[in-house]
Design a protein around this nucleic acid. Structure first.
Lengths: 238, 238
DNA sequence: CGGTTACTAGCAAACGCTTGCTTGGTTAAT
DNA sequence: ATTAACCAAGCAAGCGTTTGCTAGTAACCG
């Protein structure tokens, strides 16, 4: 159930636009990519696949947990290293920098919530039911099944990491488009502002990490209450 | 218009429970308190009032601005000192620690939003209008008139400052009680869950710092849109 | 299949710099 | 004359990152 479902290295690297971004060494990039990028030069040696005891995932899990618990700036590379019983310098074999780790966690968080939402939405046909399912999946990822990764993705602001702010914004924009489409599909009277309906719902969902308690109502119950409050009876009947 | 309306030192110190908390020296506390606490000992000299060129407020303004822009952990005492053209060590004449500064900014933020909300609510009588006015005031403080202080108060989580987490929680609880009362007063059918109605609204309001743009709709417009979405037509007519 | 080679994954130790905070002394407002 | 307010200097600890090196693993070759 709670087994971490990491993306394979390929899909991770695909969130990156170009090899020229300065947050991963050529070596680390080659590692992360499943398709061995053989250079055009003739003296180039063919790269090798990651070893079976590769601890990149362990490292990312620890980073996600600590970034979630303490926040990015309050977590040191030594903290992360200690969590997986490693020396801080060794992290730099897997990641180019602390910011690169944050970006990786953030992207993985977006991928996980996105996947959960997609699966949940597919099962429904009614527009309101689809939105409710998406909300429940979002809440579930954020507070139950993928807390660490998802909360880093939700709570990290672009200004927290200057060098990768553009990437962070793009990832979030891409995710939120799902909700934009779901709300666009709602049968609403023309006097209802879809823009603010979206901001109202997403804001409430994202704020849930502050008040959500595992021993309280389950995500589906919360989602139903939220959608119920937004779904105006009059619009329904008309 | 944008003149900072700081609380006087007395009201600030009142948010503190006891003199024994370890985040302000005896000296700094005496400074902050308007009623000079004369000790029972006989050899005690009477303390003097703060000088007219006291820069405590300037310092707090700078801290609020930097905490808001970069976050608490990403801001150093030297950054704050530099912002008011001071040496970092000199800050410790006014505040006992970095955490004490955060607490002061946080408390002042809560005071300012609280005051704006109180004033706005007083002008209305209809329960829904009162809630809408409170929402507009909240949005206004958070994104326009008291951005720095208010955003620190909203965005800072208890786990960001271990030693003062209880105080932070208490201040926030006290503020949110205003919304609890406003929603309690709404004429709602019994099937509407007031608990989740509150979480929905407050979450959306607090998330506004992510998307609010000064050249977009004014806070009152946003608040009206939010309340409109929550105020179900059916309930209104019944 | 055994040996050689190539390279992954990590250790150990440091680099230069920044951190929150302290202390002793000085100046200027009251 | 008193002392609020600040400076100058520095402390120990911690920061992100780099470097030189090596043990162990996997792919290849005869």
């Amino acid at each position: 159930m709670d087994v971490p479902t990491h993306s394979n290295p390929k899909s991770l690297s695909e969130t990156r636009r170009s090899k020229s971004i300065p947050y991963q060494t050529a070596t680390a990039f080659r590692r992360a990519s499943s398709t061995p990028t053989i250079m055009t030069g003739d003296t180039q040696t063919t790269p090798r696949a990651p070893r079976s005891d590769n601890r990149r995932v362990q490292l990312l899990d620890a980073a996600a947990r600590l970034f979630c618990e303490r926040g990015y700036h309050a977590t040191s590379m030594r903290d992360i290293a200690k969590a997986v019983d490693m020396l801080s310098g060794s992290i730099y074999y897997h990641f180019d920098s602390k910011q690169a780790m944050l970006l990786a966690v953030y992207a993985e968080g977006a991928r996980r919530i996105g996947q959960l939402v997609d699966v949940a939405v597919e099962r429904e046909t009614d527009p309101w039911k689809r939105l409710e399912a998406a909300s429940a999946a979002h809440l579930h990822a954020l507070n139950v099944s993928h807390r660490d990764y998802a909360q880093v993705m939700i709570r990290t602001l672009p200004q927290d990491a200057d060098g990768i702010s553009a990437q962070l914004r793009e990832i979030r924009r891409h995710y939120e488009a799902k909700f934009r489409r779901l709300i666009e599909a709602l049968p609403l009277p023309p006097d209802v502002d879809k823009h603010y309906l979206r901001l109202l719902l997403i804001g409430a969902l994202n704020w849930s990490h502050v008040w959500y308690r595992p021993d309280g109502d389950r995500p589906e119950v919360v989602a139903r209450a939220f959608i119920r409050a937004l779904r105006r009876q009059a619009a329904e009947r008309g």
